[in-house]
Design a protein around this nucleic acid. Structure first.
Lengths: 236, 236
DNA sequence: GCGTAACGGTTGTTCAACAATCCATCAAGG
DNA sequence: CCTTGATGGATTGTTGAACAACCGTTACGC
């Protein structure tokens, strides 16, 4: 065994360098569509035509279908049999479900604060600082991005790759509901102090208190998002 | 709007009746392969040849590839570019990661016990009873199945569809490590009392205590699984 | 023993075709 | 007027074949 490289070391070599691991066309297409959907380029309800998109992206229908399967699997699109691929309209129950998941995962991760390495804890605070800087510039889109990084960093306190990925997907899906929020400042402004407060608790290793604050934080955010959601489309 | 059926009601009509929603061939194939892999029919490290499997299942390569993509997305297979699809050999870090995820999710769900409807709480106890019955018959394979139902029922205490799905996938992936366990009785026997104890705490709505017990339970299970894992393949 | 060049087999991707299904349109009937 | 049933066009579901790209192995030369 001497002289060889273990799988774990090999994996760590390419960690975070996705461009180094060869990736199939389908995955690249999925990645592209993922960002487009999250950006809101395709509003919820849009049908993604195989032929049109395949032509636009210069890939064959089969490859595109493989990409669609991936996106459907992470709920960024929905597949209706014999009808095609659609950007989903999140129902109220979906939004609630996502927040239930977030309370569980982010809250549980926050409780691990004391056990987490310092590096990860300061990452939480760093995201809050980023948000504050962006707010000072009145760049509320950057505030939103930083806010998502904040929650991702909270999830990372659990120290689990799978939790990280789970958070990525959950937040991506939640973006489908954010499209309803028009006034970014009004939504994000009140949460910024609370972010700071939670981050400080995390850095101090006071996980239980952080979870408690986070829990009410998420409940409030959910309520606001549901309200905005209802204002746009009554029932769905 | 009067006289029409809302989306939510429409959804509830087909809930739990998957045979009514048409499903594509790729998904059916993925489902079949999923169970086969979880059964251990394809031991970790096996390469799943597109041509051979496609012929065996009577589906085209393209359709099979769509199915593979789904399985890779839930980590039941891994895709090595230009080399094919493999049943993964879980590394020690994967097993640890999965247990970290389980402690977070199952633990967090257990804490919700008091808030969960009675129906879900008795489901936890019912799974334990199933396991005990199977143990009385010395049917240790059934014990394992009941044990998985037990943990699934714990996750269901969170009351979130997404958490349910997350648990399904995590447990499915973990089965890849279970293949290393040869002596089922030796592994499961000691946990059965602890299952019962946790189930009683859950039914009584004492979520915090349930989580506490569960946490040490999972830590012990992880240690045992890692030991068995190491005994078989040293490094990977 | 070691580098290397050719080879066979497998995957990655595309294309074209056909069946099955859905949607819109329109006609008929109460 | 509204509902029901039939027609046709468009899109998806699935297949088969084709070719390029790539990997692992084997054979060769040094």
């Amino acid at each position: 065994m001497a002289g060889t490289i273990s799988d774990e070391i090999a994996a760590s070599l390419v960690a975070g360098r996705p461009e180094l691991v060869a990736v199939s066309t389908a995955e690249r297409v999925a990645g592209l569509l993922r960002t487009r959907i999250m950006e809101g380029l395709f509003p919820p309800g849009t049908r993604l035509s195989e032929e049109a998109l395949g032509q636009a992206l210069g890939v064959s229908r089969n490859t595109l279908r493989e990409a669609f399967r991936l996106l459907c699997h992470e709920r960024l699109t929905v597949h209706e049999m014999n009808r095609g691929i659609f950007v989903p309209k999140l129902a109220r129950s979906d939004v609630s479900d996502l927040y239930r998941l977030r309370r569980l995962v982010e809250g549980g991760a926050a409780r691990c604060a004391a056990r987490a390495p310092t590096e990860r804890r300061v990452a939480v605070a760093a995201a809050v600082t980023d948000a504050e800087d962006a707010a000072a510039r009145a760049d509320w889109l950057a505030v939103r991005t930083a806010d998502l990084h904040f929650h991702q960093a909270l999830g990372a306190l659990a120290g689990s790759d799978r939790v990280d990925e789970l958070m990525r997907r959950a937040l991506a899906e939640l973006r489908l509901a954010f499209y309803a929020m028009t006034d970014l400042e009004q939504f994000h402004r009140p949460f910024m102090e609370r972010n700071r407060s939670i981050a400080e608790l995390v850095v101090a290793g006071r996980g239980d208190e952080a979870e408690c604050e986070l829990s009410s934080y998420l409940a409030d955010a959910e309520a606001q998002l549901l309200a905005a959601h209802e204002a746009i489309n009554g029932s769905s």
